[in-house]
Design a protein around this nucleic acid. Structure first.
Length: 768
DNA sequence: GGAGTTGTTTATACGT
DNA sequence: ACGTATAAACAACTCC
């Protein structure tokens, strides 16, 4: 690298990690004035006192037994109940009862209970607190089975439940990091709107971006309990999310999926107090850096050019929001290998025999990232019937009921019987760079509890055969099965050759799911490059990055005839396909006179080379059309939510070349996902309802004049507000599962129409 | 015009 | 090697 005389020596990278409680407590008594100058990380890691329950003036939520109830960051009708470890149920009840009395009838309708124990990070949604303490107890009981909580109401009859439980099951933490991680799962909640946290302002607004925070005056108040310590930590530690992820969260938190820079700052500060109170101001520089660096972030400028918005490229956007993302503990699969489901009342919902999970995001081991899923159960799928498909899709991809399950080789999936109110379940996992989707579909019958444990067992193929190494292999690796047949189906052992059969056909995909994934339009690539050159020649202002055009100038994305709008959202322009490569331009392809300035040479290189960032550990001979179309962050065929076919709204990499990176991209939290896209096919489905309005929409025009993507349609298309959809994403490297994301849906949880009369006793044998 | 903000780019550090 | 974080330079731009 050439050295620039203007550039100073780069100091050693600082870590902004916040010292743990012990360290923080230790620091409390030490005046930092005499700190080592050469250790900026310690200097800036000073927390300020907050989270203690004694001196915070704004702590209106007086903790009961260490339990804190604070506002949910995004859900106005929900509050988050942070439960320290070793809290007994009664304490929780007391706290909730007190809160309920305080709030009265106008109180929150949902309580999200969060705790972290050795096995479980769970979240309990209590949509109807007024359903009574009995229900609450039962619910709590159900989640306490395998936690440090001490259920003491194990034999209560369960009936008239309106409660639903979202249980986010992590994995065993085997080390003392359990304590460290205690409640860090709520770290992402930031300070929410909690006035009780009231962290003192460590950094002043006047601080310059690259100045060291004035932390000399910071003192850390001693916390008297581990619970408050954990709480404090949760608001002091650096979020486990990358800047890119946080930017996505921020942008996706807005209705129009766009945000000004300063608002991004504000959002991050609001949701991650670390950046507001602990981190150096330079983090804003990093935010800007990320915005500029990653192609997925697209800058829009209003027509008058005075306002800049940052958006997410629709093809790269997974519409993840913060409240969808939950951290789970490290998963030690090997322990599960040895003794799966031995003593479990509530064992990990899914255990995977495999190697140690790889981290999904920086500085954490794994994350649970709920992925949206249609809430409606309007589609009733019979176990043995073909999957209903949009009429236009034809039946060519319908699922063969005789082989309802496709299990990847070398994957043994164990599912314990805790699918309580779960009527739909999505399991995404990858094996050998391939993504599989296993779905449990709702049935017409009342939800039933799956037998537990149910092993999904699929032994490895001897030949290390990738499921998609054959020519017609990959399509979409998805399986939809009914719940009734789930258990039985899971026992089906697919032979390796089945991976090459049509069984793997993506029955929920359009008829030509992969014709739409053909190699990128050469002409488009050329165009992009040319326009890049044009821009360079024109010497255009740097600030005019690649600005999105108003929708009036936005090229229309076309939909192949085979991909009916029933698989898209509303009447919005469907996704572009290879059949219209030139038309399938996003804002990256601009109208005449507009350029497509790539931000960096790197990106340009990516554009020229249809490469994949996939670590090609195992050379996979993928059919050429798929090789060239690896857009890991691409959206799977999207389905109009309430009707038609249940399609995964997750951008499911449709090719076999899905790697760890690809899966990260699925989550929208990985690396710059747009790079391959710019080179590859642009024909993949887009959430055009969003695309047109948010990215391409005229920034200055009134909403009325913008594209007809109605809010309703967008709402249906964008499930980020329906945070009850989760999924399980497993990623494997080297033929082993290496990380896991759990994504289990709870349809109806939000709209309260799911089997509310379902007796828990029917579902939870342990509670009978 | 100066200060501050925004956006781009380069360079380095660090972890995997 | 790659992705990410951090730091910085610098230009364009906005605001007072």
């Amino acid at each position: 690298m050439k050295s620039s005389p203007h550039r100073p020596l780069i100091l050693k990278r600082r870590k902004l990690s916040f010292p743990h409680s012990d360290a923080a407590s230790a620091l409390a008594g030490d005046e930092p004035s005499g700190q080592n100058v050469g250790s900026p990380k310690q200097e800036e890691a000073k927390p300020k006192e907050h989270g203690t329950n004694k001196t915070e003036p704004g702590n209106r939520e007086v903790p009961v037994g260490g339990i804190r109830i604070i506002d949910h960051p995004t859900l106005s009708d929900a509050q988050v109940v942070a439960i320290p470890a070793n809290t007994d149920v009664q304490s929780i009840i007391d706290a909730l009862t007190a809160k309920g009395k305080e709030s009265g009838s106008n109180g929150p309708s949902k309580f999200i209970l969060i705790s972290s124990t050795q096995f479980t990070v769970f979240q309990v949604l209590l949509p109807k607190l007024h359903c009574g303490p009995l229900s609450l107890l039962k619910t709590l009981n159900s989640v306490c089975l395998r936690t440090s909580l001490k259920p003491s109401f194990g034999n209560l009859g369960l009936q008239n439940e309106n409660l639903r439980v979202c249980i986010y099951l992590g994995s065993a933490e085997t080390t003392s990091s359990v304590l460290d991680n205690s409640l860090t799962n709520i770290q992402w909640l930031g300070n929410m709107s909690s006035s009780g946290l009231n962290p003192c302002s460590v950094k002043k607004e006047t601080e310059k971006e690259n100045q060291t925070p004035k932390q000399k005056a910071i003192k850390v108040s001693k916390v008297s309990s581990s619970s408050t310590t954990s709480w404090q930590e949760s608001f002091s530690e650096r979020p486990p999310y990358s800047y890119m992820a946080m930017i996505q969260f921020a942008i996706n938190s807005t209705e129009k999926k766009r945000m000004m820079l300063k608002d991004i700052y504000t959002w991050i500060e609001d949701h991650f107090p670390y950046f507001k109170h602990v981190a150096k101001p330079g983090w804003k520089n990093s935010i800007r850096h990320n915005l500029s660096l990653h192609d997925m972030f697209v800058r829009e400028t209003s027509a008058n050019g005075k306002i800049s918005f940052w958006t997410i490229h629709p093809e790269a956007n997974r519409y993840l929001t913060l409240d969808q993302v939950f951290k789970v503990s490290t998963f030690h699969a090997e322990k599960e290998i040895e003794a799966p489901f031995i003593d479990t009342g509530l064992r990990p919902l899914f255990s995977f025999l495999g190697r140690k999970m790889k981290p999904l995001l920086p500085r954490v081991n794994s994350y649970l990232v709920p992925i949206h899923f249609p809430l409606s159960q309007s589609v009733i799928l019979q176990p043995s019937s073909k999957m209903p498909l949009p009429a236009s899709q034809g039946a060519s991809e319908t699922m063969q009921s005789s082989k309802p399950v496709c299990i990847a080789p070398k994957v043994r999936l164990y599912i314990s019987g805790f699918f309580l109110p779960i009527s739909c379940c999505q399991i995404y996992f990858t094996v050998s760079h391939s993504v599989f989707l296993l779905q449990v579909l709702p049935s017409s019958e009342e939800p039933t509890l799956l037998p537990a444990p149910i092993p999904i067992k699929e032994e490895a193929c001897d030949g290390e055969l990738s499921p998609f190494t054959s020519q017609q292999s990959i399509k979409q690796d998805a399986c939809w099965i009914s719940k009734e047949s789930f258990a039985a189906a899971l026992h089906i052992k697919e032979e390796s050759h089945n991976f090459h059969s049509n069984t793997w056909a993506p029955h929920f995909l359009p008829t030509r799911p992969f014709t739409a994934l053909k190699s990128p339009s050469r002409s488009k690539l050329d165009t992009l490059v040319i326009k890049r050159q044009e821009r360079q020649e024109m010497g255009r202002s740097r600030r005019k990055q690649h600005l999105a055009l108003p929708s009036s100038e936005e090229p229309v994305l076309l939909q192949p005839t085979s991909r009916s709008e029933s698989c898209t959202v509303g009447n919005d322009p469907p996704f572009a396909t290879d059949t219209h490569p030139l038309e399938s331009t996003s804002q990256f392809s601009c109208s005449q006179g507009e350029v497509i300035p790539f931000k960096s040479a790197i990106k340009e290189m990516f554009c020229k080379l249809p490469i994949s960032s996939i670590p090609s550990k195992a050379p996979i001979t993928t059919p050429a059309p798929f090789l060239a179309t690896t857009d890991p962050w691409r959206l799977a065929p999207f389905v109009k939510e309430p009707s038609d076919v249940l399609c995964s709204p997750v951008r499911t990499p449709p090719t076999s070349l899905i790697s760890l990176q690809g899966n990260l991209d699925i989550l929208g939290l990985g690396s710059t996902p747009l790079r391959p896209s710019l080179c590859d096919s642009p024909q993949l489905p887009l959430l055009n309802a969003e695309t047109n309005d948010m990215v391409s929409g005229p920034l200055t025009s009134s909403p009325a004049t913008s594209k007809q993507s109605s809010p309703e349609l967008q709402a249906s298309a964008l499930p980020e507000n329906h945070s009850f959809l989760e999924g399980l994403v497993l990623d494997t490297m080297n033929d082993s599962l290496s990380k896991i994301l759990l994504d289990v849906s709870f349809p109806g949880l939000e709209d309260d129409n799911l089997g509310t009369d379902l007796s828990w006793s029917q579902l939870i044998p342990e509670l009978k």
